[in-house]
Design a protein around this nucleic acid. Structure first.
Length: 211
DNA sequence: TGAAGGATTTGT
DNA sequence: CAAATCCTTCAC
């Protein structure tokens, strides 16, 4: 794909809005990762969740701590946490400086991976596997090799992790009703379960469970 | 200093 | 439905 530098990437000011607005707006955008070996990995964002100030499910709900402090800062930075001692989850910090909020990237649709990147059993097709490769926040970080070291890093080509806007084709299809978004409740929570702050692209095979 | 629990995933 | 697994937070 890219041999050099991308033309365009999402800037902090675009993310400096309510996470409830940014979460659906990120659907259709692309997450791009330059791996340590130079390979480029990218996927279309198909599922997001918003977390914000006053939200009992938000990691920043109680107080500012060492772990959640990046969420209190300005938009455009990554917040990555370890969940259940074994998986990482990637968030995009949103909203204004001082207002703790973020968008969890739950699932990507990956269309392509570097050759020999995925070990697949003999006789199976790569395509169906690809669709589920980043279907879930833990799997997404596993595939993209993202861990807590990215916390506090800006989404920018120089950090080897960045966001790109929707393609004109995607926006056109969305405008014409050929792509639809679903808004519903978030997954896996014990608090704030009633808040409809999860969005996903209807009929996307890459959406995590319950899609 | 210790214990409880979690924005997950996978397999039984 | 339960296990894997470890970091964070809060209570004592």
């Amino acid at each position: 794909m890219y041999q050099t530098v991308p033309d365009c990437w999402i800037q902090p000011n675009w993310l400096a809005r309510s996470s409830l607005a940014v979460a659906p707006d990120l659907l259709g955008c692309r997450l791009v990762r330059r791996l340590p070996d130079g390979n480029l990995l990218q996927g279309t964002i198909v599922e997001t969740e918003a977390y914000t100030h006053g939200d009992p499910a938000c990691h920043a709900y109680r107080r500012r701590t060492v772990r959640n402090s990046v969420m209190f800062g300005p938009a455009g930075f990554a917040y990555v946490y370890l969940i259940y001692g074994m998986y990482h989850c990637l968030n995009v910090v949103t909203d204004l400086d001082g207002w703790a909020s973020a968008v969890l990237l739950r699932s990507l649709q990956v269309d392509w991976v570097p050759a020999n990147f995925v070990t697949k059993p003999k006789g199976t097709k790569l395509q169906p596997e690809l669709e589920r490769l980043a279907a879930g926040p833990g799997k997404l970080c596993q595939l993209f090799q993202i861990d807590r070291q990215f916390t506090g890093q800006p989404f920018h080509p120089t950090t080897h992790l960045w966001l790109e806007p929707r393609s004109p084709h995607f926006q056109h299809q969305l405008n014409h009703g050929q792509i639809q978004f679903v808004q519903t409740t978030r997954i896996g929570l014990t608090r704030g379960i009633e808040l409809p702050w999860r969005w996903y692209i209807a009929d996307s095979p890459a959406v995590s469970k319950q899609g």
